Simulated scan of single mutants.
Amino acid sequence: MMKNVLLSADGDIKVYSVPDIVEKNLEKIADEFSFEGGLFDVEDFIDWLNKYKYPYKKSVYIETIGCVGDVDELPDQYKNCKWYNF
């Protein structure tokens, strides 16, 4: 099963559909990426997930939301999604 997450790197927020295990453990998995020398970048994180961590279940880009100052400013369909900022 796939779930949406919000990812950003001090800029535009991007929505990705990721395996549910990634959504459930987003912070832990993103930290693991960082500790392995990942460049704190959304695209690099997704590439790492797809090539090394979960190659059997690829994460997919959905859309760019843009910059928001607060969770309340997110579109309604994404307000309950986990959000990680690199």
Rank of each mutant, 00 (worst) to 15 (best):
G11M: 14
I46P: 05
K14Q: 13
G69L: 12
V15L: 08
K79L: 03
V22Q: 02
I46A: 03
D47L: 11
G37S: 01
K14D: 10
A30I: 14
P19C: 09
I46H: 04
K58G: 03
S8L: 01
N80K: 10
V18M: 05
V22T: 07
Y78T: 09
G66W: 12
D20G: 01
I29Y: 04
S34K: 12
E63S: 11
F40D: 14
P19G: 06
K24A: 12
I65G: 05
L39Q: 10
E73T: 02
A9D: 15
P55V: 04
S8C: 03
V22L: 09
Y54Q: 05
D12P: 02
D20W: 11
V71F: 08
K28G: 04
Y16D: 06
L26I: 11
F45E: 04
G66F: 03
V60D: 06
N25V: 14
P55A: 02
G69N: 15
K57H: 11
C81K: 00
G11H: 15
K28E: 04
L26Q: 02
Y16W: 04
D70N: 12
A9W: 13
G38Q: 00
Y54H: 08
L49D: 03
K28Q: 07
K79W: 05
P55C: 01
D76T: 05
D76A: 04
G11D: 15
P55M: 08
C67Y: 15
T64H: 06
E23H: 07
F35M: 11
Y16K: 03
V71D: 14
V22C: 02
D31K: 14
I13K: 00
N80S: 11
E63M: 11
G38E: 03
A30W: 13
K79F: 05
N50C: 03
P75T: 00
L39R: 09
I29H: 01
A30F: 14
Y61E: 07
D47T: 10
V60Q: 01
E32Q: 10
D76N: 05
D76Y: 02
V68S: 07
K57G: 01
Y16H: 05
Q77M: 04
F45I: 08
N25D: 10
D41F: 07
P75Q: 00
P19V: 07
I13S: 00
D44Y: 13
Y61G: 09
K51N: 14
Y16V: 10
S34F: 06
T64Q: 07
Y54W: 00
Y52P: 01
L39W: 04
K58R: 13
G37C: 02
A9F: 07
A30H: 09
G37E: 01
G69C: 06
S17V: 10
K57T: 05
